[in-house]
Simulated assay, not measured.
Amino acid sequence: MNLNEWLRMNRRCLLAGACVSLLLMLPGCATLGPNVSKAVTIEYDQVMNFESFRFKDPISVQGHFQKNEWFGVGSYGDQGRWLVYVICAIRNDGPSQESFNFNISNFYVNHEDASWRYGPPPDGAFAMLNHNLYPADGLETAALWKQFRAETQNGPDKMVLPPGVTFPLWRVVIWVPHTQYANETEIFRPELPLRYEGAPVVMVSRNNRPELGGDLENPVSHSGMPTECRPPPLN
């Protein structure tokens, strides 16, 4: 039995906070060792993938060579996607729990033999909306990320959570490249497990397929960003 099958079978147990002893049987969770009783469970839903985003209002951004008006951002040369995760629940109510230091920068995904973290994309990944062959330079990327983050992130960067259960519905949006897919459906819809750096944490996916969000012709906007977790599939 693999990890995803185990989590599906024991979802109710995990969400009830009754699986501390069972966690010891999970492949990959043995590293928790004596900290298993302090493990925090983070449940999430990968709700959407999107290619382009329209800002509420255009922003004027100074680059290395000139100043441009940016109405939003796309993906330069169609080379990447933004993956949108919603944090459904943070369960920190085991028998030996301590305060949990939540840090959004600790979220990451593994993709194409590399780890991709929450934070600004690489220089050149942002492109001008409706002109995806104009990449952002380093100065532009910093300013564009500040605006993008303000419109896509709805939770704190850091927060100390006391023992208990929180249903935050905070978004985590991570950029990943795509270079190894054969067709547009695969390119647009990577399904990647969300991970959290720092033990002891167990990540539990709701195993829903992400919706297809904004493309270059119909970018997603702040009002179109997901705000809820979907129920897990019945089967």
Rank of each mutant, 00 (worst) to 15 (best):
P200M: 10
L194S: 03
V176W: 06
H178Y: 10
V172P: 05
Y181C: 14
P135W: 02
P200R: 09
A114Y: 10
W145A: 03
L161C: 10
A150S: 15
Y134E: 10
Y118I: 04
T152Y: 04
A143G: 02
R117P: 04
A125V: 00
R117I: 09
R195E: 08
P177K: 12
L169F: 11
Q180E: 09
Q147S: 13
E184C: 01
L139E: 10
E151F: 04
P120D: 12
K146V: 00
R209A: 12
D113W: 05
S115Q: 15
D157T: 15
A114I: 05
H178Q: 10
P121A: 06
V172A: 05
D123R: 06
G119Y: 02
V220S: 14
V160P: 01
G138F: 06
Y181P: 00
Q147P: 13
L216P: 01
Y134K: 12
S205K: 06
D123K: 09
L194F: 01
A125W: 01
W116H: 15
F167K: 15
T152L: 03
S205T: 07
T141G: 02
G224S: 08
L129C: 02
V173R: 07
N208W: 03
T141M: 07
A136V: 00
H131T: 15
V176N: 06
P122H: 11
N207G: 11
L161S: 02
R171G: 08
A199I: 11
E217F: 12
L192C: 04
T166G: 01
G214N: 06
T179D: 13
E140C: 03
A142Q: 13
P162E: 13
P163F: 02
R206H: 08
G119W: 04
A114C: 12
Y134R: 08
